[in-house]
Amino acid sequence: MKTNLRDFNISWFATVLGSGGVALVSLPFYPQLTLVLTYLLTFVFAILTLIWIAKIIKHGNVVKSEIQHVVLGNFYPLQPISAVILAILYKKLSFGFDLPLLIYGAVLIFLFTVYLSYHFFANITPQLNHIHGGWFIPPVSTILVTDALLLYPPNKMLFAISLIYFGMGVMLFLFLATILFLRLINHELLPSELAPTNFILLAPIGILIVDFLSIFRHADLLFGSFSTHIALILSISLWGFGLWAFIVNAMLFVKYIKREFPFFLGWWSYVFPTAAFTLGTIALSHHIEFFKPLALALYGLLMFVWISVSLKTIKLLVSKST
């Protein structure tokens, strides 16, 4: 590629996150695809991480300025969240090495979430039109850690840690959703280069549905309560909000397509949120039959989106290599 190390874009990790979401969703449908993708994503994650580390070593000042940037900073948790999605896949496939990956991702996610909040509070004054869906990435990463921790056998310490991450993610999601809605109502639509980030709203919704069901199941096992019905009430209600968000953002996508809307890495923001909402729907389908055809339809849509974005990404790589 003709681009140099200094120009390496942290958004390349969205390819691992998005494809990792596809791998997770594919597990009940095509487990062979999950297996192949897990091997492939392990390789891609390792290569991207080596490039990222090399950039930190050689261009530390550039990395620092990107982390502190009002737009780019929120995308930096994509690296550790990619580690967490791989940890989840490793756990589900019994690969081993899932716990070291999870610990690494969880620690770095916590540090990024705390630092970015502090930085935006103390050092800069973002304008309302600076707010975009990418600000959801830190809360998405924390609630995905919750999902990963609850894959392990019920344990009070792990349960407490999972709820700490859950609390951070939920409250940040609520605060940021309020600000983003205010921005969308009071300002013009986001520019094309940030348009896909609107879709990230679906990511925390989908993961929260899975988290609610897992949290209440673990609470039942650890404390002897019977609260699955409460989890279903919360999760189905949240799914309704997700349906609204999905339709509105699909309509916004059509509006952007009617303008000049060329492909760029940001289009991967359409993949993982769709995967997350599909995962939430699959989780609900285990309890209520109504959600089974919806889960299947969403899976079909996810595969279409993923294949389309993947092909465009390959074309982008080829064009940069020539």
Rank of each mutant, 00 (worst) to 15 (best):
F290D: 07
L311N: 05
W135K: 05
L294M: 15
V44Y: 10
L232T: 09
I230V: 10
F166P: 01
F241V: 14
I185M: 08
F304Y: 12
L33C: 08
L221T: 11
P80T: 01
P126G: 10
L99V: 13
K320I: 11
S11I: 10
F121D: 06
S117M: 11
K258F: 14
K55F: 07
A297Q: 07
S19M: 15
I200N: 01
V25K: 01
L37I: 09
L37P: 04
I56G: 11
V114A: 14
F253T: 10
V44G: 06
N249L: 00
R6E: 06
L108S: 07
A250Q: 11
D147T: 06
L265C: 07
F97K: 06
T322W: 12
V25L: 15
A276P: 10
V16W: 03
F43D: 03
Y270E: 01
T313S: 13
Y165I: 02
L149R: 04
L243T: 14
A14G: 13
H218G: 04
L17R: 04
H59V: 05
V210Y: 03
T274R: 01
I282P: 02
N123A: 07
I207P: 01
A23D: 13
F263S: 06
N186K: 14
P31R: 02
L72Q: 14
V36I: 13
Y256H: 06
K92Q: 15
V22T: 15
V63S: 09
S308R: 13
P28F: 07
L41W: 09
L265Y: 09
Y90S: 04
T197D: 00
F261Q: 08
K64S: 07
P138L: 02
L202A: 03
T142E: 11
P196G: 01
I131D: 04
F43C: 11
I67N: 08
G20A: 06
L201N: 01
V22F: 13
V63T: 06
S310L: 15
F29S: 06
P191Y: 02
K258L: 14
F264R: 13
V84D: 03
L93Q: 12
P273R: 01
A245V: 03
L17M: 13
V62D: 11
G167T: 08
W267A: 00
